[in-house]
Design a binder for these strands. Structure first.
Length: 292
DNA sequence: TCACAGGGGTAGT
DNA sequence: ACTACCCCTGTG
């Protein structure tokens, strides 16, 4: 963002129990850039500037209030969700207290699936760079003030780009996976509308997603949680696995396959996806593995 | 400057 | 259950 440029115009949206920086910076999305004391990016194809200078006020590009409210899940009843967590869980309570206004972003389906395919065995800054490279080389430009933003390339665009071009975006072995899955989506063989279809069960949805190349249980869970808004999915990555082991089973040595997933289902309740996000964000940004 | 290890997993054996 | 996989970054 060039220095000295005028701050974008904004409308003010009253918010409660919402933390913009935590929400955008908790490893759910990877394309927002900071600037003018806020964040600049695209919500699907809508260019948006977001700023939260005061706790109860979210500044949004005029006209994008509705899109932003939906994306940032301002309708989620966080009080009720947190109240459903086990009352005697101090580790979770600490993670919630660390970022009480953290929300699960309602993500566009293809963008979410593709981004998480590119995320395997990668750290956040690298995922972010891949996302930007893909956008700039294969997405469409969208102006916002004097800035140019780039949409996430459609499944069709990714499929047309092909594996070699994707590899040149720094995807490594993920290029083949992304190209193949993009082809499935572009051809209609994988219609992602099932993600939010209440007639499709969680188990069925999981099976359909994991049938796609490069999509295993972890990435599928992320997509079902974020893009599908199925709040009972609990993605288990190395951070969460470490946290669960240390916090809840400090003495146990053996963890059979599925053990922690079953524990999460039993312990954290119907909104365990939120519990996972609180624990994950706390573990990653508060150095909680040692002392938190 | 340059090995080397390891990182928000998945697929094939 | 075990291992390779591409690429990048941090470390010595």
């Amino acid at each position: 963002m060039p220095p000295g440029t005028a701050a974008p115009a904004t409308a003010v949206l009253p918010v409660r129990r919402f933390d913009l920086a935590a929400t955008l910076g908790s490893g759910q999305v990877f394309h927002w850039r900071t600037g003018h004391g806020g964040f600049v990016g695209l919500i699907d194809r809508t260019p948006v500037f977001l700023r939260q200078a005061a706790a109860g006020q979210l500044e949004v590009t005029p006209g994008a209030e509705g899109v932003a409210s939906e994306y940032l899940a301002l309708d989620h009843d966080l009080d009720a969700i947190v109240a459903s967590f086990p009352a005697d869980d101090t580790a979770l309570a600490r993670a919630v207290a660390y970022a009480p206004g953290l929300r699960l972003i309602r993500q566009p389906a293809w963008e979410c699936l593709a981004t998480f395919i590119t995320s395997s065995l990668k750290q956040v800054p690298h995922i972010s760079r891949i996302s930007h490279t893909l956008r700039e080389r294969h997405g469409d430009p969208v102006p916002l003030g004097e800035h140019v933003l780039w949409t996430y390339p459609s499944a069709d665009a990714v499929a047309r780009a092909g594996e070699e071009a994707l590899r040149r975006c720094g995807l490594g072995y993920r290029a083949g996976f992304l190209a193949s899955t993009a082809r499935l989506v572009a051809d209609g063989a994988l219609d992602l509308s099932f993600l939010t279809d209440p007639a499709v069960s969680d188990d069925d949805a999981l099976a359909r997603l994991t049938a796609a190349p490069g999509v295993g249980p972890k990435i599928a869970s992320c997509v079902l949680l974020f893009a599908g808004q199925r709040l009972g999915f609990f993605p288990i990555d190395v951070w969460i696995e470490r946290t669960l082991r240390e916090r809840y089973f400090p003495r146990r040595r053996k963890f059979p396959p599925g053990f922690l997933a079953r524990f999460a289902r039993r312990h954290f309740g119907p909104y365990r996806g939120y519990a996972q996000q609180f624990l994950f964000h706390h573990a990653r940004t508060a150095g909680a593995t040692a002392a938190g």
